[in-house]
């Protein structure tokens, strides 16, 4: 199954490089075994290899702050809805500045939109469908319907497969810290080796660090080599926060984090 090449995307990318508007295009290219993979293009000719189709679900926003990418110059990024939300959230947390990247928004069809400012991306997102994937929604409903004991048993069993590879962390656009809590050994908060308690501690901590920040892209779950649906943890927290405070993340560069802000009219039903 070959990727549907989009003349439009390739032309725009080539044009941007030619005009030296950007020095790098971050996008998707054909991988092995019928899969797509991230593609980094810095010369005009190679833009032919860029593609976008239904397989291109990866959130590429996590490449935007990686040192080995940022040293290549100003990027344009092929952006699905997830990537766009990632960009907006990164900007809200002051990890990206406005007009330092160009987003090539491609949600449907051949219609590639060149978004140069965060404001344009916000506008684009305001018309986008931010629903969860159907299978995620189904599993989440199933988990929500469980008793606390069953849910705990479910996660304990799932976490037993975790090999502490931290692929989830590497894939997450919001795990941009240069020093992660798991890497601190003075004191050693979370044990290095994969163990029942340590695995659970890592995932609980990761979810808590994403509470009020997670943009619900599900990239962590997709990256997991053990196929643990770990993305549902931060997504469930996002749901909880939406219910409590009505806020959605990754849609406005001025948004804050509900876990770090206080408004006098915040609901306090969790205090009993």
């Amino acid at each position: 199954m070959g990727g549907r090449k989009m003349g439009n995307l390739n032309e725009i990318a080539a044009h941007l490089l030619q005009n030296d508007d950007v020095q790098l295009i971050i996008g998707y290219g054909e991988g092995s075994a019928g899969r797509v993979r991230p593609l980094f293009v810095s010369n005009k000719k190679a833009t032919e290899k860029l593609l976008f189709d239904s397989r291109c679900t990866q959130n590429l926003a996590s490449y935007l702050y990686k040192k080995e990418i940022t040293c290549l110059g100003k990027p344009a990024i092929v952006a699905n809805i997830r990537t766009l939300r990632g960009i907006i959230r990164l900007a809200a947390e002051h990890q990206l500045e406005d007009e330092t990247i160009i987003a090539l928004a491609v949600s449907t069809g051949d219609d590639v939109k060149e978004l140069r400012r965060l404001e344009d991306m916000e506008q684009y997102l305001s018309e986008a469908d931010l629903q969860l994937k159907k299978e995620d929604k189904a599993l989440l409903d199933k988990l929500n319907a469980m008793t606390i004991a069953d849910r705990w048993a479910f996660w304990q069993q799932e976490m037993a497969h975790c090999i502490k590879c931290y692929a989830c962390r590497q894939a997450c656009p919001l795990c941009y810290c240069t020093q992660c809590t798991v890497e601190i050994n003075q004191p050693q908060w979370i044990p290095v080796a994969s163990s029942k308690l340590g695995n659970m501690e890592w995932h609980i901590m990761r979810s808590m660090h994403l509470a009020g920040r997670c943009i619900e892209c599900g990239q962590c779950g997709e990256a997991c080599p053990a196929n643990i649906p770990i993305h549902l943890l931060p997504i469930r927290l996002a749901e909880e926060i939406r219910e409590l405070y009505g806020s959605v993340t990754g849609i406005s560069k001025r948004e804050s984090c509900e876990m770090s802000s206080f408004q006098p009219d915040d609901k306090e039903k969790f205090i009993t």
Partner: peptide, 12 residues
Amino acid sequence: STCMGCELCMQI
């Protein structure tokens, strides 16, 4: 500094 400048502590 390992501080990433996310500024969330400024709000909290």
